[in-house]
Design a protein around this nucleic acid. Sequence first.
RNA 1: GGGAGCAUAGCUCAGCUGGUUCAGAGCAUCUGCCUUACAAGCAGAGGGUCAUAGGUUCGAACCCUAUUGCUCCCACCA
Length: 905
Amino acid sequence: MNHIYYEPNCLFLRAMSIPTKYQPKEAEDKWYSYWLENNFFRSVPDEREPYTIVIPPPNVTGVLHMGHMLNNTIQDVLIRRARMKGKNACWVPGTDHASIATEAKVVAMLKERGINKKDIGREKFMEYAWEWKNKYGGIILEQLKKLGASCDWDRTRFTMDADLSDAVTDTFIHLYKKGWIYRGIRMVNWDPQGKTAVSDEEVIRKEVNQKLYYIRYKVVNSELSMANKNSNIHHSLLTIDHLTIATTRPETIMADTAVCINPNDERYKHLHGKKAIIPLINREIPIILDEYVDMEFGTGCLKVTPAHDLNDYELGQKHQLPVIDILNDDGTLNEKAQVLVGEDRFAARKKIIPLLGEAGALEKTEDYKSQIGFSERTDAVIEPKLSMQWFCKMDEMARPALDSVLKGDIKLIPDKFINTYRYWMENVKDWCISRQLWWGQRIPAWYNEKGNWVVAKTQKEAEEQFLISNFESRNLKQDEDVVDTWFSSWLWPISVFDGFKDPNNSDINYYYPTNDLVTAPEILFFWVARMIMAGHEFRGEVPFRNVYLTGIVRDKIGRKMSKSLGNSPDPLELIEKYGADGVRVGMLLSSPAGNDLMFDEKHCEQGRNFANKVWNAFRLVKGWKVDDNTVNRNETAIAWFGSRFSEALADIESNFAQYRLSEALMATYKLVWDDFCSWYLEMIKPDFGQPVDKETYDSTVSFFEDVLKILHPFMPFITEELWHDAEVFGERAAKDCCIVAKMPEIGQIDTQLLRGVESVKQVITEIRNTRNNKQISPKQALKLSVRANSGTDYSIYNGIITRMANISEFTPVAQRIAGVAGFVISQDEFYVPLNENNDPAAERERLLKEKEYLQGFLRSVEAKLGNERFMQNAKPEIIENELKKKADAEAKLKAIDENLRGLAG
RNA sequence: GGGAGCAUAGCUCAGCUGGUUCAGAGCAUCUGCCUUACAAGCAGAGGGUCAUAGGUUCGAACCCUAUUGCUCCCACCA
């Protein structure tokens, strides 16, 4: 779309050696290193007010995705703004060890090399894992730098740093001593792929199409079966009946320990006290009675499998049923299953169906939809499994954490999340904190050979405790499990400032509580709620004041961006293509807090175009020659933009105060593009080849400085680049960088002037419109007259109007001018005599149309004013407004009537 | 099954305590322009029964009720 023959024209431009398009790449590298070299991101406590953000630590092995882009752009905007407002801004970066995800990656890596995790043992495995971490762990942080993230990199932390791990151990012991951490056998969510337990929150439920299998169990006549106890072979001959159960998991029938029916179920009264026989393995199980069974569902007969279903487990406990666990940790069937041993649970499900068929036990299958739990990290289907785990009691910690949100000590933005937060906190369950992994902080519990155990920080301390309690303390072994990753990340806002190691150090005292937390609503409970609990428990204070919840980044047709769908653009490629500033603007343009972001590359394009606009506005100003002898004719324009800037700034500030970042950006965008470029610069632009007067130039340069400042948090690179143009701004010392410039403050706002210019803009638009309609070239100067009925003095706008609308002569008149094109702006009549003949008929039509509209308007206003109840109930200022509307409309109608009469005459 | 939220222009969203004929912005679209900063641009224009149906009110996009459609969260029905 570039006009090839246009570019060479640039050669004729004076002082226009800079390209017509902003080149982001070079500026980005240059200024990011410059900022680093000059320690602008570094924060140490001082006398200033702190402004602190701790980054939601990304997975150490992760790579940057669009969610990170959005999240970190927001944080950077907030932190840069705070820095420019004179606060001591501190953004603490870091990464999370993400035990299950990282361990899975390391296991996969080892597998590729033909190494099995179990064979090499824990120590060797950890060596590999650290090696992996050191190799890939920094990638995502390096990527954040490309985005312009102004983190204090000297403070970079990792959740498995020695100090942070110590904090985990110490808090574990602390909570254990309080009685809030306990150990027990429970049904947990087992991830057969990660081979670990996961917490309830890490289970994602999805609706899945399944089959419901109807399986026939023979029923044994109890007396006969007793009599023939020793002749299993003849079971089938002795059965007198059968029952049918419905299940989605036929591969678990070998673990059944009962069949349950509702005692009130008339259909099955004859089964009371009898026994059923599991098909294929022919094991006898009791038929028990419990009202838990829904008579409506399936056949009304429920197979009870305590080892592989939470409800069945509870039912089993109640009826003291044995537990038969037929699954290995990896989800394959073990020898207790007797059939299909070694098969994976899903393979077994497929294979058992023909077996049941052959045995005559399969009655029918039905399609069936139900919710199934998947592991958040590995996406494996969760298997309920009975095992010994560590738990953390949550109810007591939840209470203050709920209060601080309900009382508003912590604000959720947007606040619609308060409801969900409350629901969760009021129904909080104990947290399963142990994980059967190696990558993470090991549980500080020690066991002797007899199975006695203590909780202690070191083996030595454990031995001492064993001695005190007179237990055998030889050959102590530490618990093999590690704690849940979130058991370290919930300490993050405290641990990054060494608040556990040294609870009274100057950093934690200065930076804590932090100000804003920017994160996704998905981890509101996982992470945010638990951080609040930890804040109360370990510091007696909330960890942050505001939680800005971002939405999910989706593609433009609303699908969540994911690797598997391949619909996620590579953020670094986007930066390459549109520049970091362009991408930042693109991300922020349409993403109000809490709303999902329908990502479209077009937004980045818009961001890039905006950067280019700023760049070219700068080229314009840079190209001007200043002449001290030229007179300033732009006082009005300068005064206007000063006011307009303050007005817009007030709006921007208010948007920021409410965390409406996209609106703050849009307000900035419009101020710069429309008010500054399209209006102000056009108003004051000297004619080609003409110099600009000193006053206008200085004011414009100063305005430009302010514009760069308010743009900086959104577009750090281009602003810093232009900021350092020595020709325009003079040489700047390092300490005077844009990144640390003082944000402009809201100045005087001359509302009368603002309103006047708004009218003037309308006048100019009308004239341009007239040109468009009548196909008059903008180059052809026109004459303009005004009959100022409103009393407005247009003389101060003379320069603006003549320049912007190419008017050769702008004169006030006392009488209306007949037979001339015209328009009315707030009671004032404007006339544009045109050279060619007017079309009186068309003009008349236009006037009649406007008259009709005004009459309708007047009628509605008069109706209101004539309404007694309105006059009684409406606020006085509303009524006053209506009266003014009436007067305006009447004046306009009068002018139109006069014009119509003129046309007629 | 329970709870919450949303529905405004082709798209993404504003619309704050009901009150300018209130229906807005950006993008996209259309028309005319290579006007000496910028065609990644300039100037102008056209787009909407505010999901549907009722109600409250002098007055409703806004408050209430119902309906429809979508989204999210929570929940053990095999």
